[in-house]
Design a protein around this nucleic acid. Structure first.
Lengths: 238, 238
DNA sequence: CGCCAGTCGATTGTCGACAGCCAGCCGGCA
DNA sequence: TGCCGGCTGGCTGTCGACAATCGACTGGCG
């Protein structure tokens, strides 16, 4: 996959995506970037018209979104974008912690010492971005870091589970913009993780990642109800 | 929900299930009990005819099964029941371990000391069943035990994540029947978990659950390729 | 004035049919 | 004989239409 020339690669995937997958992508984007706000109802007819597709692939896409937890469906009542309470944030970050800890243990246990250069490169760029207050860039690199971490574990089931969790993390992060000094704090707390992995010290790595995730979670959960979650106007109570 | 009379309850849910959900249930059952063997192709037309439904709800159901990892879809090529390699077992049980460990930590951290009577009752019945070599009953109670454990954590996201994992565990267990003395071994290894939770000793409980899960995983993974996974005859290589 | 039954509009659930794609087969050609 | 190209059957992907259901509104009755 990565050895494939870009031209061929994009050509190969040019029309290989079914309409359903396109719709999933679009809805992902819409929900993650807040275009569809939490609680907003998804009217199939309306959405299908907007997207210029029929309801069949749209409904299939909605099933997927539902499985991912991005929307919630009440039978015969409709589907709406799932809401995010403070409790959800806490749960999300606690789960995330143990998943990443597992990933790190897998990485450390691997027989051949993996090269951490990818992680180190990401980390370095993240620190630079943090010092330059390039908030969006830091976020992006932060995601890369953790995605890479999971990928390096070579644990397929963990990967698929992570994908679900990462979706929610991304969603939370876009709804919540952090302060600049917090950004720097978070960015720098990646370093102990890398160090511990390099030393193949499972205990320390686990502590580091859980501390890192907990910090992030606390920062995000703090005052969650106050300004987040703008209630949409067309909020007929379902 | 639990205070509702059974008659009304079943009446209320009599027709409340959409066709799609019915199909999901049927396919779950079929895959879990091995009626649909790993690798077997799912022909939409054929299946729809067998179930007496149209392809629309069937396809929606397939999307859900796909999200659950029970089937694998190749675009424009078809869907087949996902296979189970030895690697998958190992991954499944390692993930399961950290999820249950998280659940236990949540339970212990709860402010009000929860009552462990439900767990104790299940455990006791499981030991009796194990001593009586009632293998199927032990399995059932084993699932109850772990499901209850997760439920008691009060961690919604963990619950939904667990549901996916539990599906796979059930699938693995039905494909693999254990020896009687192993059953007893597994049954009795629930006790240290309960003890540790009762003492609110997080460290010990975590060790106990991970040991328990690891034991189960080893027993299941052992000689996995040998007799499991009967290759279906109609196995056109997709 | 408040409650209940009937009706209506909107939305979801389901269906049958058509279009497009892919694998495998067959025939021609070097 | 082996390879390449077109044909064909079966299956998936998509669509528009119909049926069923739920909430809101309306009107009558106690």
């Amino acid at each position: 996959m990565s050895s494939m020339p870009d031209a061929l690669h994009s050509l190969g995937q040019l029309q290989n995506k079914s309409l359903r997958e396109h719709i999933v992508d679009v809805l992902h984007e819409a929900i993650l970037c807040g275009d569809l706000s939490p609680g907003q109802p998804l009217i199939e007819t309306e959405l299908a018209a907007q997207l210029g597709v029929s309801r069949a692939p749209l409904r299939e896409a909605i099933q997927i979104l539902n499985s991912e937890g991005l929307v919630e469906t009440i039978p015969r009542r409709g589907t709406r974008v799932s809401t995010l309470e403070r409790k959800d944030i806490v749960e999300l970050y606690s789960l995330r912690g143990v998943l990443e800890a597992l990933a790190i243990r897998c990485i450390i246990d691997q027989s051949d010492p993996c090269d951490l250069r990818r992680l180190e490169a990401i980390c370095e760029r993240m620190l630079n971005a943090a010092n330059a207050n390039r908030l969006r860039k830091v976020n992006e690199l932060d995601h890369s870091f953790h995605d890479t971490l999971i990928a390096m574990s070579g644990h397929c089931l963990l990967q698929t589970t992570w994908n679900l969790v990462a979706l929610r993390v991304r969603r939370v992060m876009t709804l919540r913009n952090m302060r600049n000094d917090d950004i720097r704090l978070v960015a720098y707390s990646h370093l102990p993780i890398l160090d511990a992995i390099r030393d193949r010290d499972g205990e320390r790595a686990t502590s580091a990642i859980e501390a890192h995730v907990a910090t992030g979670g606390d920062l995000v959960a703090e005052d969650w109800e106050v300004d987040a979650m703008p209630t949409p106007l067309h909020n007929r109570d379902l």
